[in-house]
């Protein structure tokens, strides 16, 4: 079943800015779907329309088969949203924020208290439950918004740049939590401009730029399209020049690090042999952290 179906979605803001020009994509139930794009590409507008914060000017949105034009409240019950920036009252206490949100979804208070405890504990915020939200750190505020987005146990969770500005350790923890949620059967849509994040988490990826989807496929397929790949070679001795080689570009990060960008057709054996001929000894080699970045740059430029 389709968790989300978006067809020809349009948004023109009052000032005349066309934020979305016919966005179309589907998300299968159970997917971990990444919506990637540079800043201002239309990611947040798309999410805003799905969650009713932005009014569309054209197109169709269906959530688990429910057309938002026919029964938006029913569709909303199936969606949980974690926005990019904190949007809770900073004066309210952590648990109150979560239980109130449950109340807005019609969950009785007794049940809301049980669920808020469950999610605040899972996200490591239970000790802070009586603290006004303004006293939380940036990472805690984000986790609070995840707890709030989950309290009505939505089938589809949408996260808008959930790890922007979060430190590496916390980001890893958040990734593990999201993977676990997805394994339990929850469909997840994630917008991010950290391509490493999308590569780690998502099985389906769509790329949006200037209000249009320019790619929408599985991560595996997307990576298969990758024509170029970059590696860092740590060399035994300083290297200042390398003889040219077909289908390969060499550059230098520093004296002991050679940056090698190879076309798909070029073999790694050939490159290593080429360096060996010149007396360059490669101690170790690593892949550039996110391969998607190269593809992404190609598509959005």
């Amino acid at each position: 079943m389709l968790a989300l179906s978006i067809q020809n979605l349009q948004k023109k803001y009052q000032g005349g800015f066309q934020a979305l020009s016919g966005v179309t994509f589907d998300v299968q139930e159970g997917d971990f779907f990444g919506l990637l794009g540079p800043n201002g590409a239309g990611k947040t507008t798309t999410i805003g329309i799905i969650t009713s914060l932005v009014t569309k000017t054209g197109g169709k949105v269906r959530v688990f088969g429910i057309d938002i034009d026919d029964d938006f409240p029913a569709a909303k019950r199936l969606i949980g949203v974690v926005p990019q920036e904190a949007n809770f009252s900073i004066f309210e206490k952590v648990q109150d924020i979560v239980t109130q949100q449950a109340g807005y979804y019609g969950i009785p208070r007794r049940e809301a208290l049980v669920r808020s405890e469950k999610y605040l504990k899972k996200l490591g915020l239970w000790e802070k439950r009586h603290v006004p939200a303004q006293q939380l750190s940036g990472g805690m505020k984000r986790r609070l918004m995840i707890a709030r987005g989950l309290v009505h146990e939505p089938k589809l969770l949408i996260l808008d740049e959930p790890t922007a500005g979060v430190d590496v350790e916390m980001r890893r923890g958040m990734w593990d939590f999201l993977v676990e949620l997805n394994r339990q059967g929850r469909t997840i849509i994630l917008t991010t401009h950290y391509l490493e994040e999308a590569e780690q988490l998502c099985n389906q990826i769509a790329i949006i730029t200037r209000g249009e989807i320019v790619e929408n496929t599985s991560k595996r397929e997307l990576l298969r399209k990758l024509n170029k790949e970059t590696f860092f070679f740590d060399t035994k001795n300083p290297v200042s020049a390398v003889m040219p080689l077909e289908n390969t570009e060499f550059s230098f990060m520093d004296d002991g690090t050679l940056v090698v960008t190879k076309n798909k057709s070029q073999s790694m054996n050939r490159i290593l042999a080429h360096l060996d001929q010149q007396g360059i000894v490669v101690d170790s080699m690593r892949n550039k952290a996110n391969r998607l970045e190269e593809l992404f740059m190609e598509m959005v430029e």
């Binding site: 969650t51 009713s52 914060l53 938006f72 409240p73 029913a74 909303k76 019950r77 969606i79 949203v81 926005p83 949007n87 809770f88 924020i97 109130q100 949100q101 807005y104 979804y105 019609g106 709030r148």
Partner: peptide, 8 residues
């Protein structure tokens, strides 16, 4: 937005 995204 907490209210707007809800079915209230």
């Amino acid at each position: 937005e907490e209210l707007l995204v809800s079915p209230t």
